[in-house]
Design a protein around this nucleic acid. Structure first.
Lengths: 352, 352
DNA sequence: TTGTAGGCGTTATCAT
DNA sequence: ATGATAACGCCTACAA
């Protein structure tokens, strides 16, 4: 079939120039007489030459990407870890190392997390992925990375003034609207008597949560729902229950609830205890073992999967390409939120 | 920072053996004194050695994967092409070539498609992806590939007795159940007066369509729907319309329709013309430009995206890994069907 | 500015 | 059975 694979040598032979000249022609930083460069680039195009990044990385220096996950619960950050490992596996042959640090808020102090960032700086990593430092109080330590010239991507939620290179997160603008439409469906199925709904965000200090609440509001208007209350749970289990009780007392005819955080279990339990499971439509976020039963028995009508696996995977990949190929880091990498109902839950409970 | 990266040379130095011996130790086909091999494998594990497939492919022979798409409409196979190109791009550095042949049923004869397969055999490709030859009448030409010892994966639908290595398709068992649940939601939202539904499969000779119909039936039972008719459209536009008229004549109180093929436009047009748009719940398959308007205006309540991009991508990847790394080809590669409603349609109408 | 030569990690071809 | 050694495709000092 046709001729041999066209390499730099093919071009060198064609043009009568040296292999080094050909190599330099493709490196903008390298100096080469413009006419020679042009000749090389032209014949390269004519011959259909494609650079083999494999070979080029082979002789290049190894690089390292640091990952800091400062998580809350293992079930939540497990997918992040899986996504990072997957991306690393894809690029490991290109001589990328991955320094993955897993800290748990319940055991490890915030200082430990900051210390990891400093270690990354000291080690001279080529990029960093960070999850769990998503509020403006962490701006200063994050900026130290930026000051050191190390690009970093925040995972899950943004801190715009941290000078991060980008964010990899769920498409919250769409997810909230999906939640509204699904909730309206669930309410129709439940036979809710009103269009009254309420939202339970995790924490008003988290920009993703704010965006979800906002886009849910927009979706509610579009699908004819009324939003009677926003119940900020401050990430506390007890507060979530308390707020639910107050909500139901004030609105006994409530038709639906959207829980934008992963703090849905206490609410589901209260609803069951009060015999309201299935009488009220509930839309939640994320997929995790504890929630599955609620979806199967109808306590929860639908949940929105935020694809943390892809979020993490894409963040790592962007940093690798930036370091290895000079590709600019996109400011926003958005994962596609997916509707999970009883009929397709099974596809989200097992490994990829 | 530990020591340097551990390579085969590290192991050779550690064990005092030659680099060649180390290389052989990892190749089962290569002969080497068992004790030496064991020593090498042990120290490799101890040192945390990981093989660099990049370097190994560098010195290895180039390979080629053939792709035959015998499609119906550009909008349908465009995603297949994109998925193939994406996979090829990921592995191009590993010296894989991709011979992509695009035929169109409306222009190219079946013989042309068969001829492509023979060309692949003659060229000695290392694997083939095939779409559009998904009925048992094509068994014989497909077997010629198998006889030549060339592994191949069918895309979209299976022909079990073709001796294919595997199939890459949508998870039809789940998709049908999703369709049923979504249809029941849509019917609740529409305020349908009955639970009567009907299915419009493409073609009873296509196993994927059969599976979708079956799983829809199962889902219908689960969600309390009645299936009053299966309308086999035989892939014909005119027949679809005709069957719809007959269906509505017999069941004027029909509540919902599930169209498992991509032949949904004629039905949508008829429904609109009869003023039934939005009065009846409709669940369709796939995402393509023409359908978007129907989703936005409520003629179609939901559609099920079958992720042809991933189907193609995964097929190519499986063949590459089989040829390059000896990984066994999974018999079934299943893409995750996704629910697309008005609120998230936008995420499916633009490029990845 | 340009060319030569060595190295990156592995496999394959020769000898031995 | 085993060990040198030459590719593989590219980059980069180093030299000219």
């Amino acid at each position: 079939m046709s001729s041999r694979k066209v390499t730099m040598y093919t071009i060198a032979a064609e043009t009568g120039l040296s292999i080094a000249a050909v190599s330099r022609a493709f490196d903008p930083h390298s100096r080469l007489k413009p006419e020679k460069r042009q000749l090389i680039l032209d014949t390269a195009k004519r011959l259909g030459y494609v650079q083999n990044k494999m070979a080029s990385r082979l002789s290049g220096d190894a690089m390292k990407i640091g990952v800091l996950i400062y998580g809350t619960l293992e079930v939540y950050y497990r997918e992040y870890v899986a996504g990072i490992r997957d991306a690393h596996a894809e690029f490991v042959d290109y001589k990328v190392d991955c320094d993955l640090r897993l800290l748990d808020r319940s055991r490890d102090a915030l200082e430990a997390a900051y210390a990891v960032l400093d270690e990354f700086i000291a080690a001279g990593v080529d990029g960093v992925v960070i999850n769990g430092l998503s509020s403006s109080e962490h701006t200063e330590p994050l900026r130290r990375l930026a000051d050191a010239g190390i690009p970093f991507i925040l995972l899950d939620s943004d801190v715009p003034d941290s000078l991060r290179s980008g964010v990899s997160m769920n498409d919250t603008a769409t997810a909230g609207r999906m939640a509204a439409q699904l909730l309206s469906c669930g309410m129709a199925v439940c036979g809710a008597s009103t269009k009254k709904t309420a939202v339970f965000p995790a924490d008003a200090g988290n920009l993703s949560q704010v965006s979800l609440t906002d886009s849910f509001r927009a979706g509610a208007a579009e699908y004819g729902l009324e939003v009677v209350r926003i119940c900020d749970t401050e990430n506390r289990t007890d507060l979530a229950e308390e707020l639910l009780e107050g909500l139901l007392a004030d609105h006994p005819d409530l038709g639906g609830i959207y829980i934008s955080s992963a703090n849905s279990m206490p609410i589901c339990h209260r609803l069951r205890a009060r015999g309201l499971a299935g009488k009220l439509a509930v839309v939640t976020s994320d997929v995790f073992d504890e929630l599955n039963g609620c979806i199967m028995d109808g306590t929860v009508f639908a949940t929105i999967y935020q694809d943390p696996f892809m979020q993490a995977r894409a963040a790592f990949e962007a940093l690798y390409r930036a370091a290895a190929e000079g590709t600019p880091i996109p400011e926003r990498i958005l994962a596609r939120p997916q509707a999970v109902l009883r009929s397709n839950l099974e596809l989200y409970t097992k490994r990829h």
